[in-house]
């Protein structure tokens, strides 16, 4: 069943990560956004880190810097799109729709697949599941904010980092360059947090990928996707 694994991975990941829309909805409302503003962000921006960054900025008052930071944080999706374009090969209205789904999780699932067909089903399954779950949970979190108990009490603040770590885990096992790039990226993010606007340190971590690309010998395969030995999970 070649199509089963990407769909199962995508749906599982989509449900798991989409549920943290509860945390976003609750965080957004408790930082001063309205329920509809929280829902608009989830439906239209649909990229968790940027949404959390804007909610954080709303709470701290720096709305302009927060907007710039949130968009900066979304710039990694352009790089993901660059990576996904060859796999998805969508054009016209389908491209306009697929663009909404170019995020961390869909990219990770698509790139973890051994071939193009699996990559496309993985992308679609992850996109649809996470979009629905994320938006429904945003509304639920916003409406239920204050009634559920704090997201921290439920440990929901660990969901993001744990999910991102699980997403890159197969790559970390696949090579020394990947591990070095990850460590450098994390160090840049931590080291620059006191100095730069919200969102910027994560973008600056791109430098680690530049260093890794210059340091390591380029891959020989014509299709880099075929070099993924580990399926997602």
């Amino acid at each position: 069943m070649p199509a089963a694994t990407p769909v199962r991975d995508g749906v599982g990941l989509g449900l798991a990560v989409g549920v943290s829309g509860l945390a976003f909805g609750a965080a957004a409302v408790s930082s001063g956004l309205t329920t509809w503003q929280a829902c608009a962000l989830s439906a239209l921006a649909f990229t968790g880190a940027s949404q959390f960054a804007l909610a954080g900025a709303m709470a701290s008052g720096g709305l302009l810097a927060g907007t710039v930071g949130a968009i900066l944080l979304g710039s990694r999706n352009a790089l993901y799109g660059l990576r996904l374009a060859g796999l998805l090969q969508v054009s016209g209205p389908r491209r306009l729709l697929a663009a909404v789904g170019v995020i961390d999780e869909t990219t990770a699932v698509a790139l973890a697949q051994p071939d193009r067909t699996s990559a496309r089903s993985g992308f679609l399954a992850t996109f649809v599941t996470i979009y629905l779950t994320w938006n429904v949970c945003t509304l639920a979190g916003a409406v239920g904010a204050g009634q559920l108990g704090s997201p921290q009490r439920l440990g929901l603040d660990v969901v993001g980092p744990a999910a991102f770590l699980a997403l890159i885990w197969p790559r970390l096992r696949s090579g020394g360059t990947e591990r070095a790039v990850a460590l450098l990226g994390a160090a840049i993010a931590l080291g620059c947090t006191p100095l730069l606007p919200t969102g910027a340190p994560v973008i600056l971590a791109t430098v680690a990928a530049v260093a890794g690309a210059l340091w390591s010998p380029p891959t020989a395969e014509p299709d880099p996707v075929s070099s993924r030995p580990e399926p997602q999970q």
């Binding site: 980092p161 997403l167 890159i168 790559r171 340190p201 680690a208 990928a209 690309a213 880099p224």
Partner: peptide
Amino acid sequence: RRFAELVPVALLAALVAAQ
């Protein structure tokens, strides 16, 4: 291509650290 492969690794690791 190698850069595009490594970008998610760098950014997701940075997000783990930041969050």
